[in-house]
């Protein structure tokens, strides 16, 4: 999918200003590309109109898979493939299977859910992030508005941002290279040009 290049970026300094600001921006009919925050802001997902996270469902599915595999494995190994008499117990001694079944449920649920989380959010060691403002991992909340995705003009959107009490706003353009920069390109660039150049994608303005 081709990534858009032209954005208007609004900066908020406080989480409550951000929440009110986002509500105002959306109320004015401006579509927000994404908000970037240094810490989880409660209520932001509602303000942005996101549907609830479906991660709990992923955890349930993987956990269910875990308990089914644990019970199948233990029953098959102990009861079918090689039944052994141990202390006169029945081959399929269900209470004895509880601890391992529980542990495997937790193991599958945790790893399955975290794997789903990493994949759906495109988090990977060789991921090169597209950063709008470098302060969004420090102390500022950043709202990015995709100009191509909005019917309002840039000036109108800027006006909306001002009314939403942004601390500052600016236009941010990504080059094709920045949009499609692969990992190796990033590493080569980092080692030839150092940190101050394009590897530090969004320089602090």
């Amino acid at each position: 999918m081709e990534k858009n290049k032209h954005f208007l970026v609004g900066i908020f300094g406080d989480q409550d200003d951000l929440l009110h600001g986002v509500e105002h921006i959306r109320h004015a009919g401006v579509k927000i590309h994404e908000a970037y925050t240094p810490f989880p802001v409660h209520g932001l997902e509602h303000a942005l109109g996101y549907t609830r996270s479906w991660m709990p469902r992923a955890a349930f599915v993987f956990g269910f898979l875990g308990i089914c595999s644990a019970i199948t494995m233990q029953t098959w190994m102990m009861g079918i493939d090689w039944p052994m008499i141990i202390g006169g117990k029945s081959y399929v001694a269900v209470p004895d299977f509880v601890p391992v079944s529980f542990e495997m449920t937790v193991l599958f649920a945790a790893f399955g859910m975290v794997g789903t989380f990493l994949v759906t959010n495109d988090l990977k060691p060789y991921g090169v992030p597209r950063i709008f403002d470098i302060r969004s991992t420090d102390d500022k909340h950043v709202v990015a508005i995709d100009l191509a995705n909005n019917t309002l003009s840039e000036e109108q959107i800027a006006q909306v941002l001002k009314e939403a009490h942004v601390e500052e706003y600016y236009r941010k353009d990504f080059t094709d290279e920045e949009n499609e920069g692969g990992f190796w390109k990033y590493v080569v660039d980092l080692f030839t040009n150092g940190v101050t150049r394009s590897s530090r994608i969004a320089n602090h303005r």
């Binding site: 997902e45 942005l48 996270s53 956990g63 945790a110 859910m113 975290v114 989380f117 090169v128």
Partner: peptide
């Protein structure tokens, strides 16, 4: 180490959910 983290609101939403479920597990 940071896995290309940007701190997007959608990622944080899933992150919060994942943390809560991991705590529950």
């Amino acid at each position: 180490l940071s896995f290309g983290w940007t701190g997007g609101a959608r990622t944080w939403m899933h992150y919060e959910s994942v943390s809560l479920i991991l705590a529950g597990l």
